[in-house]
Simulated scan of single mutants.
Amino acid sequence: MNVKYNTVIVYSSRIYTAILGLMIIPQLLVHLGTSQFGLIGIFAVIQACLQILDAGIGGVLTRESIKSRSNIDSFNNFTLIFYKIVYFFLIISVLVIVLGWFFSTNYALDFLNTTLDRNIVIYSVFSMFIIFAIKYIQGPFRSVLLSYEKHITLSIIDVIGVTISNPIALLLIIYYKGDIVTYFTIQVISSMICSILLYLCYKIYSNKVKLTLTSSGDVNDFEIKKIIHFAFQLSILSLSLIHI
């Protein structure tokens, strides 16, 4: 597909996301109030931690996925390693949810020092961790789709997610007199929908790529230890650049 067309679509999705943020945030502040809106600010901070837990694996997966398309054997070898990494991400996601439940029920009220109802705070904080965990597991699938150069597909999924989590969430809050519980419930639903779409797209495009490969050529052996080691080095470099 035309590179210029891809660029226009990708940048359009980013602009759309930015404009929505500028338009929706003031409205959320008006309809939720400062106390409830403060939880959204904490949510934004927690989401920023996602890049740290990725530990550079995303970039390495994209690189290794590209290398795996030399022949069918290399592709199959990479697929085995890929699912092992997905299982690792899944374990981390489960641990995040467990940690979220423990923190939300035992420390959330003392840490946040808010006058909001206890049940609302617990639900909101626990939802943050659930959303974090769901988005974290999306990482490996996004990386492989990037290696397939499916930038438009990723942009469309992002637009769907942003649309559900922002204007649709706001409309439900306004017309059904919702509160911060409504907001975080929609965020969870949005994250789940995006995760399902990413997984389905990964399966569809992976099957298509597999059909184009032959059994000829050198076979690339992928070792999970090397991938994690390189990912760790890449992560340190990325974090160093952010600090600078």
Rank of each mutant, 00 (worst) to 15 (best):
N2T: 10
V3D: 10
K4D: 07
V10G: 04
T17P: 11
A18Y: 03
A18M: 10
A18L: 08
I19T: 09
Q27N: 10
H31Y: 12
Q36I: 04
G38Q: 02
G38H: 05
G41L: 05
G41V: 01
F43E: 09
I46R: 03
A48R: 11
C49M: 11
D54P: 02
G58V: 10
V60A: 15
R63F: 02
E64L: 07
I66L: 10
D73R: 13
T79M: 09
T79W: 01
I81A: 13
V86H: 06
V94C: 12
I97L: 02
G100T: 00
W101K: 10
A108V: 03
L109H: 07
D110W: 02
T115Y: 06
D117Y: 04
N119C: 00
I122H: 07
V125A: 01
F129M: 04
I131C: 15
F132N: 01
F141S: 02
R142Q: 14
S143I: 05
L145G: 00
Y148L: 05
K150Y: 06
I152H: 05
V159F: 11
V159P: 00
T163F: 10
S165G: 11
P167T: 03
I174P: 08
Y176P: 05
F184D: 02
V188H: 00
S191K: 08
I193F: 09
I196W: 07
I196T: 11
S206H: 08
K210V: 00
T212L: 12
T212Q: 13
S216C: 01
G217M: 05
G217K: 03
D218F: 07
E223M: 13
E223L: 15
K226L: 14
I227F: 03
H229A: 15
I236D: 09
L237K: 12
S240T: 14
